[in-house]
């Protein structure tokens, strides 16, 4: 159960694949490009191309489609919500009407597309976090942000915060699970009543969780200091980035596919 929870938040799954081995900067830029691509398409052809790309990449990463799909679970509600909103609130030719509520064919299309977009977005983003260790991810972001250091952006601190946040997700999920069960055992009712009542019922879970988080943060800060951490200055890396020709080539392919899929779709529509 615990392990599944970790995966469902797109936690890093160590494996040996071309995608795992790629330079994190290449992967971050690619993910951004792919997500942009997803937002540029508007037609079945475009969407199906991106689904094909996703399937190809997840095969290549050895993560596999079933495991990928599991990572969408936490945002499933949001996706469903998006679909419903679009179905009911897009104007056009009504297919079905009852009072002020109507369903239009445009609405159905919009609903399907918007939720597909969201789904693809989450999946491409998760493909990045599933195949990139948090440390590498953070270092990659730091490296990409380093040009902005000149204008005062704390690139290193942002990256370190991300690493730690990702590192503590599994721990905190376990804690939440344990505290929730402990309060259930004390008779707490966490899933009955309206929204306000439910929020109130979560106080006995949230307060202990805050206490634990602060305690952990405090401990971690001391432990990091004891290990000579003093911010980004003077730090070196065990795994320095080596931008290989493969990374360059992959990035070129990604960008070409974004351009081609977008253009092709536009052309066909014309």
């Amino acid at each position: 159960m615990k392990f599944l929870d970790n995966m469902s938040f797109g936690q890093y799954v160590p494996a040996d694949s071309p995608i795992h081995r790629a330079d994190p900067r290449c992967k971050i830029v690619s993910a951004v490009a792919l997500i942009t691509g997803v937002f540029l398409v508007k037609e079945p052809l475009g969407f199906s191309s991106w689904i094909a790309v996703l399937i190809f990449l997840s095969r290549l990463s050895r993560i596999g489609i079933p495991m990928m799909l599991r990572t969408v679970r936490p945002v499933m509600l949001l996706i469903a919500f998006t679909a419903v909103i679009n179905v009911f609130f897009t104007s056009g030719t009504p297919l079905w009407e009852m009072g002020p509520v109507s369903i239009t064919s445009e609405g159905i299309r919009m609903g399907i597309y918007m939720s597909l977009r969201l789904l693809l977005l989450v999946l491409f983003a998760n493909l990045l976090t599933l195949t990139t260790s948090p440390m590498a991810l953070a270092d990659g972001i730091e490296s990409l942000l380093s040009p902005f250091k000149k204008i005062g952006m704390p690139a290193h601190d942002i990256a370190m915060m991300m690493t730690i946040a990702l590192r503590f997700i599994p721990t905190l999920l376990n804690e939440t699970d344990r505290i929730m069960k402990a309060q259930l055992a004390r008779g707490a009712d966490l899933d009955r009543g309206g929204l306000i009542r439910r929020l109130k019922a979560f106080i006995p879970v949230l307060i202990p969780l805050f206490v634990i988080v602060f305690q952990r943060a405090d401990d971690l800060a001391v432990a990091m200091e004891a290990r000579c951490y003093r911010g980004g200055g003077g730090r070196t890396r065990m795994k320095p980035f080596i931008w290989s020709w493969r990374d360059g080539l992959s990035l070129v392919f990604v960008i070409i596919s974004v351009v081609v899929i977008t253009l092709l779709e536009g052309r066909l529509k014309l």
Partner: peptide
């Protein structure tokens, strides 16, 4: 509460990296 990184060897490297040692 003292493990910084998700991957075992990355965590072990945290201290030496802070010391600014060569790769």
């Amino acid at each position: 509460n003292q493990i910084v990184s998700t991957v075992v060897e990355d965590d072990t490297a945290f201290g030496p990296e802070n010391l600014g040692l060569p790769t």
